[in-house]
Design a protein around this nucleic acid. Sequence first.
DNA 1: CAAACTCAAAAGTACTACTTAATCAAGAAG
DNA 2: CTTCTTGATTAAGTAGTACTTTTGAGTTTG
Lengths: 235, 235
Amino acid sequence: MGTDRHEEMLDELGAAIASGELAPGAVLRSEELQERYGASRTVAREVVRVLETMGLTSSRRRVGVTVREPAEWNHYDPRLIRWQLDGADRPAALRTLTELRSAVEPCAARFAAIRATPEERGRIRALAVHLQRTARARDLDAFLGHDVAFHDLLLSASRNPMFAQLSSVVAEVLAGRTGHGLMPDEPQPEAVALHVEVAEAIDLADPVRAERAMRDIVEQAREEIAAAVSSNLGD
Amino acid sequence: MGTDRHEEMLDELGAAIASGELAPGAVLRSEELQERYGASRTVAREVVRVLETMGLTSSRRRVGVTVREPAEWNHYDPRLIRWQLDGADRPAALRTLTELRSAVEPCAARFAAIRATPEERGRIRALAVHLQRTARARDLDAFLGHDVAFHDLLLSASRNPMFAQLSSVVAEVLAGRTGHGLMPDEPQPEAVALHVEVAEAIDLADPVRAERAMRDIVEQAREEIAAAVSSNLGD
DNA sequence: CAAACTCAAAAGTACTACTTAATCAAGAAG
DNA sequence: CTTCTTGATTAAGTAGTACTTTTGAGTTTG
């Protein structure tokens, strides 16, 4: 019985709240939760505590556990992001994340141009070259891998922990695009060229050019997603 | 004894980790934590669970509770933000938050210009007028209040929950500036004019102008903070 | 000397008993 | 008849104990 019932129950209950299956304002009794998820009181309590710190619920004596409004949730919690991406409203979640990405990455590119170590500059250039090669070879999987690595490295080179933490968000957005038939057979040559330009600008410590090129990249990506979401993107 | 020992212990322990007092890699035994904070086993366990979901610690059997690397922390958790702002490295925390703000707010202004309701547009304009008035009257406290309200409303009008959630971050940055002698006696007239321009642009549904004006605002603020941090900002 | 084995330490899980707070309702006072 | 008080009840919070599982470290054995 010592096999992490905690995470199991947290995932189920959290996903139920994130998906709206348990609507805001709904009240649960902790005893009821225990039996519904077959967990002991200890586990149930700790799960509720965690949900509480994520802002998903609030507990009051004599009342029970209340599901809070989405506006009060901690939307940057990796678990919540995952639950929303796996939930019914995946397109909306993807839109939100893409917008965040489009806001942050240009700024991150600017700081990376100023603050990256020599090693990081070299690795970013190398990844840009890999991108060119895999794009020409139409190897979409390898392209995605290098794309994720490129953006990840850039974010961490910005020397801002809050930017760096968005690496998983960017990875999710990029993977979401490739995995859902939004990508053409061959990555757009302009997008690849812009990646090379970003890499060059960072290498040459040119923050203005790095930011502008990155802005072009994310704007293009954002428009693609917005178009896909507004038409249809069931799954 | 039923007076939320949980939050008390969470705050103490979390602050100790966030401030580096408990260095990454440090190992604690949960029994030891119980007695150090005078909490019961139940409370100690739940606190550790919460810290674990925040990425501050990881627990392993036979080993204990290990403090994780800052890179693994969930830097967007409001509690962690608070602990860092209250800790020894407040200037660094303020720098990080200001950079995030400078990345997000221009983008948020753009979306607000597209998506705000008529009521929101009106209220944003009204707040800009209040800003002008209080600036001329050199009432810095009232100015700060309206400034916070202005940015808060704009962020929520962007219709992106992740942007909206940064409202407290922006409030913290703005308050941090006023509260630490960084503000001149009278708010800079250009900054006030830019706020008015943002409000106008949103009112007229002009995303490009809204974004540009907001970019000017946050860049100015960011440079101020950067200058103050690089010179001295003990407290 | 290495691989397997045993032991013990520490977190995880389960359960029970008790405490505190808050809601709701009944009853007393105005 | 309204309002305030008070008490009963309910459900979460806290405390503590017993038991299980994992796993690191030391020990034995081939």
